[in-house]
Design a protein around this nucleic acid. Sequence first.
DNA 1: ATAAAGCCTGAAGTCACTAGAGGGTCAAAC
DNA 2: GTTTGACCCTCTAGTGACTTCAGGCTTTAT
Lengths: 139, 139
Amino acid sequence: MSVELLSIGKLATATGTKVETIRYYESVGLLPPPGRTKGNYRAYSAQHLARLSFIRRARALGFSISQVQELLKLADQKDISCKAVDMIAREHLAEIDRKLRDLNTLRSELSSVIVQCRHGTISECRIIETLAPDSAAGG
Amino acid sequence: MSVELLSIGKLATATGTKVETIRYYESVGLLPPPGRTKGNYRAYSAQHLARLSFIRRARALGFSISQVQELLKLADQKDISCKAVDMIAREHLAEIDRKLRDLNTLRSELSSVIVQCRHGTISECRIIETLAPDSAAGG
DNA sequence: ATAAAGCCTGAAGTCACTAGAGGGTCAAAC
DNA sequence: GTTTGACCCTCTAGTGACTTCAGGCTTTAT
């Protein structure tokens, strides 16, 4: 492999990605298929490295694969306005905020259930009680 | 179907669950298989209703299927201490706290990226820039 | 009698990977 | 020059918690 080209393993360490994940990204069309060596090894260029870095950062920020696809498509068209990019990012932020709200609600509900646990027997366990409906449950 | 028994559709509306999800719960052993009518329709009892309500509430609190399995197993043994239940709940709470921390980090990173967007062209877009590595990217 | 709604099974699809089987290639040590 | 071991290849299946689909039976309403 030339000095300029990276094996899949090198690309993996360079970007903190697993080798299998890189092949997966190729299979779903996120990362373009690189050239191959005579031994049929993938040989990645600096462009591939840049693109994979982009992908990893976007994924780390929680963008879905398809959102990353969109961002990449937009990033390739240098002349158009970046309003679309901003919109995707803002939508994603709203999504995160929804998740945060949900998780916070969850957290307070769950912890209030836990606090009530007096470590008695199951039949008087507040956690189980809270989950079970008022009626029924008993045979 | 008798007055006391519910079709899968009624059970679904009663618990806010999709019909397919109920069949899925049966297939993974969360919900015991109910009796059948002569037409081979599932016929659910009040116990099934109670159990599914329990499952749905636990799932809504973010417990995984296998955690719900454990909780159900424990709930059925009325005489033992509920320490195990408490432990599962506390572990789950810790998990939620981890997720909350991660999401909050994510949120502040993403929103700082968004704030920098001046709606220029893609080539000067801060969002794209932040995602892309300093070097490379250009052919 | 017929149409619509509801139910049945079994298999495949979703998301974003991860793991494994069964092999080929390459660099270095001996 | 051969052997060891790390690295790479493809293809397939598994994860979690469902969802969707195909193809067909049952019940209910008109």
